[in-house]
């Protein structure tokens, strides 16, 4: 059974207007997505800003009020707060945020920040708690002095590692990492990412890795989902997405990765322009009349793409033949 099963998840924000502040419309941040998360894997959720990937991540952690659909954790729907409480859900599912400074309470010491999840779920003595915090600091490579310091006294990379120490404090099974390295420079990015991989090996953690940086996602994730306008457009393994993209949006996204290969600069440019041209010509074909992606269609055991109905038929027929 999957660790997390997301079924037709929808998160809509109401728009209120008029004299009586009535709900007149809604922003469809996430509009019906489904996917499964298996234990021990790393999943990448990629998309442009505003595509709803952060909202999906927050819903998985339980920070977002879900409009409809369900998120099953070991078979229990955790979209209701009652179930989350009963399961001690947030002991098993934690989150890492992009902005390491603002997401740490500026008036709390590192000791309190890291110990707080422990205090919520485990009743440790002062001494045990301190030992746990020290061990966590040791895992993320910070010195003992850090205990009594405040978040603003650290560098960005150190702060992000504090955020990770806080997230792994309760030995979670799943960590949702919402753009954990986007605010860091490249050398620190590598440091934090390798570190995340290390703790994954040690503790068998599952990651849901939200990013718009395709290079980082390629480095981190075995499975990748591409989001656009609140819907999934393509889901597949790393190889499927990077080497055999089928959806026009994925192709365009991949073409946007800057190449450091200067010798073939012109070729890359031409390729990009070509894809852009195809996108301009065919984008109406890949999206329905409301400009939204079609439902996903399985093209192989791992790979699903949001194809228009006529093309989808081809694949489903083929599947029958096989």
């Amino acid at each position: 059974m999957s660790l997390i099963e997301i079924n037709n998840l929808k998160v809509h924000y109401p728009i209120r207007s008029g004299f009586f502040n009535r709900v007149t419309d809604s922003v469809k941040a996430v509009d019906g997505i489904s996917f499964n998360i298996e234990k021990g894997q790393t999943y990448g959720l990629v998309g442009e800003s505003g595509s709803g990937k952060s909202t999906t991540g927050k819903s998985v952690v339980g920070l977002e009020k879900v409009t409809s659909g369900s998120i099953l954790y070991n078979g229990v729907d955790i979209t209701s707060e009652k179930n989350r409480k009963k399961l001690n859900y947030n002991r098993d599912v934690q989150m890492i945020f992009q902005d390491s400074l603002s997401s740490l309470n500026p008036r709390k010491r590192i000791e309190d920040i890291i110990a707080e999840p422990l205090r919520n779920f485990e009743h440790l003595s002062k001494n045990e708690e301190k030992m746990r915090v020290l061990r966590l600091l040791d895992i993320v490579g910070l010195s003992v002095d850090a205990l009594y310091q405040y978040p603003h006294q650290f560098s960005g990379g150190q702060r992000q590692r504090i955020g990770i120490a806080r997230a792994v404090a309760t030995n979670p099974k799943l960590i949702v990492a919402d753009e954990p390295v986007s605010a860091l420079d490249l050398s620190v990015q590598a440091q934090v990412l390798n570190f995340m991989k290390k703790i994954q090996r040690e503790f068998g953690i599952t990651y849901l890795f939200i990013s718009h940086d395709l290079g980082v996602v390629r480095h981190m994730c075995n499975n990748i989902a591409i989001m656009n306008k609140g819907r999934l457009v393509e889901v597949g393994s790393r190889d499927d997405i990077y080497n055999h993209p089928l959806h026009i949006y994925t192709k365009r996204l991949l073409a946007a990765i800057p190449q450091i290969d200067v010798d073939h600069r012109e070729e890359h440019r031409e390729k990009r322009l070509q894809i852009e041209k195809i996108y301009q010509e065919q984008s109406s074909k890949y999206y329905d009349q409301n400009g939204l992606a079609y439902p996903l269609v399985k093209v192989s055991s791992m790979h699903s793409v949001a194809l228009p109905p006529q093309e989808a038929k081809k694949y489903s027929e083929k599947e029958v033949e096989v």
Partner: peptide, 26 residues
Amino acid sequence: SSDYVRTARAKGVPINDIYRHHIFRN
């Protein structure tokens, strides 16, 4: 709506404790 309150919620801090320890003090 600040980020550190979001963090506290992600940590699983009960909502009343969030008000007491995080929001009130700040």
